[in-house]
Amino acid sequence: MKIPSEFDPIRPFEPEELPAAYERILADKQFQQVLAYLYPDVPIEAIKQKMYACKTNFEFQKVFCYTFLQRLVTELSLGCCMDAANINTRERYTFVSNHRDIVLDSAFLDKLLIDVGFATTCEIAIGDNLLSLDWVRDLVRINKSFTVERALHSVEMLRASKRMSEYIHFAVREKNENVWIAQRQGRAKNSNDLTQPAILKMMAMGGEGTVIERLKQLHIVPLSISYEYDPCDYLKAREYQLRRDLPYWKKTAEDDLESMLVGIKGYKGHIFYKCAPCIDDWLDTVDEELPKNKLFDTIAAHIDHEIHCNYRLYPINYVALDMIQDTRVYEEYYTAEDYQNFEAYLEGQIEKVKIDNRDDKFLRTCLLTQYAYPAKNYIAASSENGRLKSLLSRLTFLK
């Protein structure tokens, strides 16, 4: 298949480009250290031989990524599964999901797509702010990622957004690939998962026809990701305090790398993915005559509703909601032991925050928010007037 050259700066590597990419990453000293950590008893030559035997990106994922992820599930979780009853393994989709973990959200999706019977994984949208290291940039392109260009001027951003949209359409339509993209730029640090209409506007830049027709060509599936524990929760709380206390504070590449490593190496408890029905049929019910902004807001609210009502909640989500509201409204969903254990967990996570003038009360609230919002949004979306409350949930319950 001939891929238009305009996509070259952002697309994943094609099979014929893999040997050169393997050579580059294997020669990198830092990547060699990563391999030594991941495969302490395996000679580098054996890894090289195994890598060069992977002739396609999908083969690389099955040989290296799948086995690594299975080990993570075994050692650092209580299981990882997906409810894919609403989708067809023979079709291709654009998965739009909430975003918790920089690396694992899309990585686990790749594994789970294989587990449920898909013949391919998905191409992954990843921000170029995470690709400051050459070997990381090569590795993600081997792993079927395409680049989201950020920090551009307005005219450049418009051009980059249109190119990315056209590439996503090309990947689904011509390459017969699935695509994964987060519902918003960056992770929702407080776990209030809301779709940015700008993401949908970008998607509608590619394809042909009306806005509805263009979005239908992508076969969007809202995807809910539920981790029992988020290993990066204390890093997100730390970021909130730093932003509060230091108005000019900005995250660095080192901060992102720390989040990647902590997310991968930390304990996650139960992990659950659930696919809502593809929104194609629902889009046919939308009034295309709505003003553009209202149209995108309506679609975003529907995706939010689908994601929220498909969360899997754990006792700690209800504990957090009761703690932050200073109630015992939801105590039927947890035990006294659950409550005590979560209290101890919060104290332990706060102790991990090493900054000047650490504000324990503020950090505790930030941590509670991360675990309470999924329960709050699930309850709102699951109620009789769930769609209205999904819109209302865009108003924060923390002042």
Rank of each mutant, 00 (worst) to 15 (best):
A160R: 10
K251Y: 11
V319W: 07
E59G: 08
A300D: 02
D356L: 12
L363K: 09
A188D: 07
V73C: 11
Q61H: 14
C278A: 12
E239F: 15
D233E: 11
G127L: 09
L194C: 06
N377D: 08
A300E: 03
S390L: 02
K48S: 15
R173C: 00
S259E: 03
G263K: 06
F362E: 09
F118Q: 06
V172E: 05
V34R: 08
C80R: 07
P40K: 13
C80F: 06
K251C: 10
R358H: 13
I10Q: 11
L346M: 10
G206A: 07
A182R: 01
S259Y: 04
Q241M: 13
L112F: 02
D134C: 11
Y227D: 05
S161Q: 12
E332H: 12
A372I: 05
P43H: 12
F31M: 13
L295F: 05
E258M: 12
D230N: 12
Q183R: 04
L131F: 10
R100H: 09
F108H: 04
Y234V: 00
E331P: 07
D193E: 11
L78V: 03
T327C: 09
K48M: 15
A380F: 07
F95W: 05
L113F: 13
C366L: 06
R364C: 14
T195Q: 04
S226W: 04
P231K: 03
L246Q: 15
E75H: 12
D134G: 14
Q340M: 14
E16V: 15
F58E: 15
D230L: 07
S226V: 01
K236N: 06
E59C: 07
E254S: 11
S259D: 04
H169F: 07
A253V: 09
Y267Q: 14
N385Q: 08
K292R: 13
Y333L: 13
A182L: 04
E14R: 15
D356C: 11
R173Y: 00
C80I: 11
P315N: 15
A381P: 03
K268S: 10
G386M: 02
L290S: 05
Q33F: 12
C232E: 06
E45W: 09
R137V: 04
E6Q: 14
P277E: 11
D287R: 05
I10V: 11
A204Y: 00
Y273L: 07
D280N: 14
G263T: 07
D256F: 02
N357I: 08
A171G: 03
K216V: 01
I10A: 05
D322G: 14
F64N: 05
A125P: 02
S390C: 02
A125N: 01
L133C: 07
Y318A: 14
N293G: 04
V136L: 07
S383P: 00
N377A: 05
Y167C: 10
T120Q: 13
P277V: 03
D83S: 02
C81T: 05
R243A: 13
C81R: 00
T396D: 10
T89L: 05
S145V: 08
V329Q: 12
I212A: 01
F146P: 01
I225E: 03
I299G: 01
T285Q: 14
L26H: 09
Y167K: 09
D105M: 06
D280A: 09
Q217V: 00
K201Q: 15
F272L: 00
S191D: 01
L69H: 05
R24Y: 14
E174V: 02
F13P: 06
V211H: 01
S191N: 11
V136E: 04
M82I: 15
Y52G: 08
E208F: 00
V155A: 04
F146H: 06
S97A: 13
